[in-house]
């Protein structure tokens, strides 16, 4: 199967703007809320969202952080290679805050489960929501759903969804390809 571009600019930008507006609807000016990007791939989305929110709300800081979930994964010792972590940077107090976990693709739900466990090591948030750019529905292994969704995609196991970023790959787009293409 040829790789298929499912989202590119300007739709990509429209989706980001819509997600920001939905966040503002629920979190006002983010006085009590924190955006936490899940390492490694949720970070680009979290950065893009905070930057856009700063412009829309005209504020200098949207509280945010990076969370690595490696040590909380359920597949340690179940893979051939060892799980190497990424950096965690949370310099805001999460106790009693409203946390929005951000990831690029929601697939089996296992990463988000690990992310929620990892998050609780930093205190007890008031509530936790989930924002994803792509929801690969019908492929969940755990009962986890997102509160904010960029786009829903129907996929089969042999397919893979990749989000590319202007900052990293040079262009904003979302590509669907089968694992054998790689």
């Amino acid at each position: 199967m040829q790789p298929k571009i499912i989202v590119s600019t300007p739709l990509f930008e429209i989706i980001i703007n819509r997600l920001c507006q939905q966040l503002i609807e629920n979190h006002n000016r983010f006085e009590e809320s924190v955006i936490i990007g899940l390492q490694p791939k949720g970070i680009h989305l979290a950065n893009r969202l905070t930057k856009r929110l700063q412009q829309i709300l005209n504020v200098s800081i949207i509280p945010s952080g990076k969370l690595d979930l490696t040590f909380y994964r359920d597949d340690f010792r179940r893979r051939d290679e060892i799980l190497i972590p990424n950096a965690t940077e949370i310099n805001v107090v999460l106790e009693n805050k409203r946390v929005i976990l951000v990831d690029d693709v929601l697939y089996t739900g296992r990463s988000v489960r690990a992310g929620m466990d990892a998050l609780l090591a930093f205190g007890r948030p008031k509530d936790v929501e989930l924002l994803v750019l792509i929801d690969r529905r019908f492929s969940r292994h755990l009962p986890i759903q997102a509160n904010y969704i960029g786009k829903m995609v129907d996929t089969i196991v042999s397919e893979k969804v990749k989000v590319e970023w202007k900052e990293k790959e040079g262009e904003d787009r979302i590509i669907l390809y089968s694992k054998s293409d790689k």
Binding site: P85, A87, L120
Partner: peptide, 14 residues
């Protein structure tokens, strides 16, 4: 990474 972990409020990972 573990140095960051042992400086968290909850220092234990599973």
């Amino acid at each position: 990474h573990f140095k960051e972990v042992i400086n968290r409020p909850i220092k234990k990972i599973p």
